[in-house]
Amino acid sequence: MNAWLRLSRSWRAYSSLATRSMQNTLAYRLSYVVNFASSFVLLIAMYALWNAIYAGREELAGMSWAQMKTYLIISFISNSLLSYYSETRISGKILDGSVSADLLKPLDFQKARLAETLGSTVIEGGLTVIITATVLAAASGIFKPDFIHSLLFILSVLASLLVKFGIVYIAGLLCFWSTGSLGIVWARMAVTSLFSGALVPLSFFPSWLEKLSLVLPFQGIVHTPASIYLEEVNVWGALGLLALQCAWVCVLWLCGKLMWSWAVRQITIHGG
């Protein structure tokens, strides 16, 4: 009985964190629109660039222009589920020292940050998905997968969100070692951009680079969901990729946990 009570109480604590995060995100409505516009700009730049690259060409690295267009939009969706704003909230807490206040709360830091992130993702990501899904449906030449693949795609997107959280969380914790700069976050963004396939599909890479990217967790953010959507793998292949994503989610979560307890020891010994 006690265990249930504790579970429901802690669930309520985390979900109220999520709700409050949603409220906050809504409160800054102009800022949200601007955030969205900001990443949309990057999508347009990429789209136009690839349009020019594909000018007069049927296919590149095994992808047609139709597939490429689709890829860019999927990449955009996968990437914008966890915004820069959400990310800097985590690293911000560590950089400005307010993390020591969180030590006093009866909440698991990692779970709490996940709750907050999910809260703002519902709003930010939700609207993004609606808008881009509308564009996808309306625009021509956009690839549409069959039912099974669509389903697996949605699951993969959810998994990619958790993978991204895992990476972002660890990068945020690494800020313990930086003395006040977002340098680590920017480095993470650059590395993630390239190795997740957000900038260019991994199939464009020379094979050694492509192989390297496939063993890293970043490909779980864009490459995996995009591959499933474009039906580049069959159902079994998709399930395998999903399993890999989930494995990465667990590995990243555990790494995060370990790093956190290490960090806590640092704070409590050195006084933040």
């Binding site: 709700t19 949603m22 409220q23 809504l26 409160a27 409505r29």
Partner: peptide, 10 residues
Amino acid sequence: PGLAGAVKHL
């Protein structure tokens, strides 16, 4: 106050 108020304010 609250989530409803935040949406209304939009």
